[in-house]
């Protein structure tokens, strides 16, 4: 019907008119539904984000979104520029920086595993893990958020930068169950190695990109 000229034949005119009328009506419906629900949807997303961040950064009461690009960090907003990493800064009631949360993702056994990890600037370590989305086998893959021994890996997972400040001093690695020797290693879940490795890879990839950009600019976050 695109740009169809008003033909003399009445049936065509009626068809175009009907479709135009219905489309207009539907457009109005969609726009009003969008406007009517926009604030609720935004609030929901905010609550979900805060809940996820507060879970991995205990003690935090507010959260701000930032992006880290090659030039430094900036508050998130608008269309994200290319080559930036999104992260969340969590603050306690007094307004002091409690920790950084960021998303890591890597493909697991069934689908992409998306996790949210917390990074503590004071201890230079990863201090918490939450799962955002996964479709791993129930009873096996979901141990990444039910298995206490696995979660204990993320109480103080070493994530300090090397001397040049461009990469992690020790890449975060997943090792076979029972063979964790170093603080930057993650002890895999026996029987769920693929999912465990996805978690480790997701965190490592994200931290390698984010932390070198973040570390020099921490004061900017504290000042907020």
């Amino acid at each position: 019907m695109n740009g169809a000229p008003a033909v003399v034949a009445t049936s065509s005119r009626a068809m175009v008119a009907t479709l135009a009328l219905v489309a207009t009506l539907c457009g109005i419906l969609i726009v009003s539904a969008y406007q009517g629900t926009l604030s609720a949807v935004t609030a929901n997303k905010r609550v979900a984000l805060e809940r996820a961040v507060f879970k991995v950064v205990p003690g935090a009461v507010s959260v701000k979104e930032f992006v880290a690009g090659p030039a430094g960090i900036a508050p998130a907003g608008g269309v994200p520029a290319k080559d930036t990493v999104k992260f969340y800064a969590a603050y306690d009631a007094a307004g002091a920086l409690k920790g950084i949360a960021a998303e890591g993702s890597a493909s697991g056994y069934a689908d992409v595993v998306r996790v949210l990890y917390a990074w503590d600037p004071a201890r230079q370590a990863i201090t918490g893990l939450g799962v955002i989305a996964m479709r791993e086998t129930p009873g096996i893959g979901d141990k990444i958020y039910t298995d206490a021994a696995f979660l204990a890996n993320f109480e103080a997972l070493d994530a300090r930068l090397d001397a040049s400040g461009t990469a992690l001093a020790n890449p975060i690695r997943v090792v076979k169950h029972g063979s964790k020797r170093n603080p930057w290693e993650i002890d895999a879940i026996s029987g769920a190695t693929v999912t465990s490795k996805a978690v480790g890879r997701g965190i490592n990839d994200s931290a390698q990109r984010l932390l070198p950009r973040l570390a020099p600019n921490l004061d900017q976050l504290r000042g907020n």
Partner: peptide, 16 residues
Amino acid sequence: ATFVTVVDYLIAAISL
């Protein structure tokens, strides 16, 4: 399609 879009917004507003 219109009502599906409306319901899509509504569900997101009610429970994420």
